[in-house]
Design a protein around this nucleic acid. Structure first.
Lengths: 145, 145
DNA sequence: CCCAATTGTTCAGCAGGCTGAACATTCTGC
DNA sequence: GCAGAATGTTCAGCCTGCTGAACAATTGGG
């Protein structure tokens, strides 16, 4: 009796299942990331900066979050010493965000952790059909939708 | 240059894709739900209460959120008049949560909206394989993990 | 019977989404 | 040139997740 937590999850609309699954997967990361002084949002930002510095707005767009959310995330990453934000000499409105050496180091460690710990994925390792479904979903919703 | 929002989404780990997709799908609901004076979390709680009243902790478990999160969500639903919380006469520690008539009405309208507006699903209508994947993922992560 | 452990709920505080509004800087058009 | 539009960032505030801690009520052991 005490162990009947979700008797009807299968009746839920797909969108809600998606939200629950995302939350559970993300939670799997928390312990690892906390050990690296990093959050999930910060990891995504660092990942997106791996190819070189970007202005904040571009970074936000690539991470699929608003400018405001990215601003706050970068605030924390800056305080942690993982990125620097310097005014763009070519355009005073922009701040160029750049990964620091310690930022790159922590990103590498996180990526390695993700590859090495299959438990982090909850078994969704390399299901290409699933990935393709998610990608087309994102594409459809983020574009014209 | 200005139109290169996500050049590398396909390189993202599956867990991050999942999070982005969930966020985008949820956003699709916001306008509809706001019109019903309801939030996504509130909708899930109402859906879970559709079969009858439940103590708060049980409700939280079935919704896969913490007791604290559910407490706050129910606070808003109570203020909106969609649920009532009364002390359990059989156990003074518990509060029994019960949907009101207007709660049932709003739930019905939300369910109907979901069924009638295919755009709300972003095209993930009835992909059983996808649903099954999500369910097994949730099952694996919420249980032993 | 009473103190301690357990159970159910809530409070405090943090992080991450979002929107709306403010602000500085650049670009445009008169 | 200078006022107004557009662009980039930040501030304020809301809702939802989480954890840790407090508090009330119940249950159990001595």
């Amino acid at each position: 009796m005490s162990t009947a937590p979700e008797p009807d999850l299968s009746t839920w609309p797909t969108g809600r299942l998606l939200a629950v699954a995302a939350r559970l997967v993300e939670q799997r990361w928390v312990a690892v990331l906390a050990g690296l002084d990093l959050t999930h949002a910060g990891l995504i930002a660092l990942h997106t900066l791996r190819g070189g510095p970007l202005p904040q707005r571009t970074l936000a767009q690539r991470c699929q979050v608003t400018d405001q959310t990215m601003s706050r995330t970068l605030g924390r990453l800056t305080k942690a010493g993982f990125v620097t934000r310097t005014p763009d000499p070519a355009d005073g409105r922009r701040h160029v965000t750049r990964m620091t050496a310690s930022g790159r180091a922590v990103l590498d460690r996180a990526v390695r952790a993700e590859r090495e710990d299959p438990g982090l994925l909850g078994g969704l390792g390399d299901d290409d059909a699933f990935r393709a479904r998610l990608l087309s979903l994102i594409d459809g919703l983020s574009a014209g939708g």
